[in-house]
Each structure stands twice: as structure tokens, then as C-alpha cells.
Amino acid sequence: MSPSSADAANTAPTGVGNGPAVSRREFDALFEAVRTWGRWSPADRGVWNRVTADHVRRAAACVRTGTVVPLALPWNTRPGPGNRKPALHHMTDLGDVEAPEPSTHKDFIAADYHGKGITHLDALCHIAYRGQLYDGRTAHEVVDAAGARFGAVSTLGSLVTRGVLLDLPAVLGIHWLEPGRAVHAKDIVVVEKALDVTIGDGDAVLLRSGHVRRREELGAWDPDTASAGFHVDALPLLAERGIALLGGDGDSDVRPSPVDGVHSPVHALAVAAMGMPLLDNLDLEALSAATATAGRYDFMLVVAPLNVPGGTGSPVNPVAVL
């Protein structure tokens, strides 16, 4: 069950900033420590190769009540501090053709989705570090104007696995984490203990910071400059647990970045070093309520990206089933 505020106060992680600072040399050493190049086949599915039929059956065993919780934000066509590249939606057919029957209504949608306004999946070709994609592929040799020839979203397929919600605000007895709050490895351990859940092999880990609720209550801000998310010191623990997917109601990175000269260090470690896709900009408020009601924080997660040959990712509407 979700812990009481008193229990949370006794186990509250310390520190509220984005630090400690990490030098470029320290970051590069961390990159090498979690790197899995050469481990998986096919390489451009990365750690999704971990997820076998046994993992799917384990995920299915998490379904007890049949509660279905969609995790995507609404299609966001309004510009704002957190949506610099609004999605497009307009009608192309208003059913005004007289014959033959039936009349139809059609619309058009489009999005430059790699931003803060659209729920999306990052494929392995999306992130390069020091000019290299996952598995050591040279980015400019395999990604061009026609798309990606390695690590494209079309090679990933769909993922069904056990999901784990790290609901840190629930543990702390607060509504949200303030932007700029780093989530550390020690925080993950505290949340696991408080919520009686353990991250395991092939799992999808979703971090709730309360970003969506804060925006609804206090208004939008620029999450490129300040957002709650993981500090890089959390990645070795997640790598050790063998997770297959990482996501959150932000984009997983704490901002400002604690790493000198690296704007999105968690992206670099997860995607380029570990070969792990990321889920960005989820709405985890309904899932937070559903897991608290159920008294458990694991569930079946279904992620089905669009089949876009050469695509660097895809808008998605992941679904949690309890």
C-alpha cells in the first residue's frame, strides 16, 4: 500500500537539487561502465532483446482487476513554454459530399514529436554520443535525410512487459517533485521498499515526478531549463537490474544537467550506451491513483510504436493494465 506521510518522512531521500556535479571525465567513465555494445542480436533492438515470452507471461500475471490506464498526453496543438513545436490537427473532410452515401469525416495529424509536448518513444537512432550511436555505429554514416538504416523504430516492434511505477511523490507525501530535483539510485531503493515493489530483469521503469499535476495547478514552464528526473548515478543500478525500458512524465533527465557539456546525459547513457529506448512525456497521474487504489505498483505495460521505416521514434499511447 502507499505509505503514510509519517512513514515517508522517516525514509525521505536527502537532497533537493540536481547535483552532485559530474565532470566530463567521470561521465565518460560511467558511459563505459554501462555500455552493452556487442551484447545483443539484432543489435538495433538493444535491450528489448531481453524481453522473452516468459517476460510477457509474467507481465500478464500482473493483470488482476482488468483496469486499463492510458498513459499518453492529449495531442497538443497549442504553443507554450513546454510545447515549442505544437502538433498539427485539422479537418480534411467535413462530410459535405452529397452522393454517394455514406458521408465521411476525415482529419490530418502531424507532429515534430521529439520535444516536451507529445508522448513518444525514442528509438536507438535518436541519440548519438561523441558521434556514435548504440553499438558503435557512426551516426553520419547510418542516418541521413532518408532516415536511419540502424536503430530505427521500425526494428523495435511492440513491447509487452512488466511495468513498475516509481511514485516518489507518493512516498514523500507530496503532490510533485519540484523542477530541478534529481532522483538518485538511493531514491530508487527507498521507493522500492516503501511501495513493496522490486525492479527486475526485462521490466519497464516509469518515474512519476508529478510534472503533469504541477503544470495543471501552477501553469506551464520550460522543462528544457528545469525538470525533475534521474541523476546519472541512478543508471548503474537500473543497468544492474536489467531493465528494458525507461520512461517518465518528464523525459527522464534532471535539468539543469549535472554533467558538464552534456545536455541530456541520461539519454546518452540509456540510448547510446545501454541500447535502451526511452518513453518521454507520459501522463502518470491516473496510473498513480490506480496503483494506490490497487495497493501495488507493478502492472502489464503495452507499448506499440508506429511502424515508420527509418524513424527515430514514434508518438505512442502506452497502456498499463492492472
Rank of each mutant, 00 (worst) to 15 (best):
L88H: 02
N10Y: 06
A33I: 08
V63A: 10
R162Y: 07
V319G: 11
T225G: 14
D253N: 15
H114F: 15
E216I: 10
A128R: 14
L156Q: 06
V34N: 02
A320I: 06
A43Q: 04
A21L: 13
F299I: 09
G313R: 04
E240W: 12
Y297W: 15
F108Q: 15
A234S: 10
S209K: 07
T155K: 04
L245N: 05
R64Q: 10
A170Q: 09
T11V: 12
G200L: 08
G219P: 01
V34W: 02
D28S: 06
L124P: 04
E98N: 09
L133Y: 02
F31T: 06
A33F: 11
A292T: 14
V319S: 07
L246M: 02
G229K: 02
K186D: 15
R45S: 02
P86Q: 10
T92F: 04
G19R: 07
T198V: 15
K186R: 12
A220E: 15
A21E: 09
L124V: 06
V271R: 04
D96Y: 13
M276W: 07
R149I: 02
P305C: 12
C62R: 12
S227K: 05
K85I: 13
V302C: 11
I118M: 13
S252A: 14
A289L: 13
D203P: 05
H175G: 13
L306E: 12
P315Y: 01
T161Y: 01
P86I: 04
R50N: 03
S23P: 01
P318F: 08
W48Q: 06
H90R: 14
R78S: 08
T161A: 02
P309F: 09
P13L: 03
D44I: 00
D253Q: 01
L94Y: 12
L284V: 03
E216C: 10
A139Q: 12
V142C: 03
V254R: 06
T312P: 09
A29W: 05
A59S: 07
L121W: 01
V319C: 12
R24Q: 09
P318D: 10
P265A: 03
D167E: 07
R130S: 15
G248V: 01
K106V: 13
I243K: 06
L94W: 11
L206Q: 06
F230C: 03
H211A: 08
V160P: 05
V183G: 00
A8I: 14
V197T: 15
L121R: 00
L195W: 10
G38W: 01
G200R: 15
L30Q: 01
H211Y: 10
Y134Q: 07
T312R: 11
A204E: 08
G247K: 05
D135A: 08
G151I: 04
P70G: 05
G66F: 07
V34H: 00
T14H: 12
E217Y: 07
A239P: 02
A139S: 10
L30R: 03
G200W: 07
S41T: 14
G202A: 02
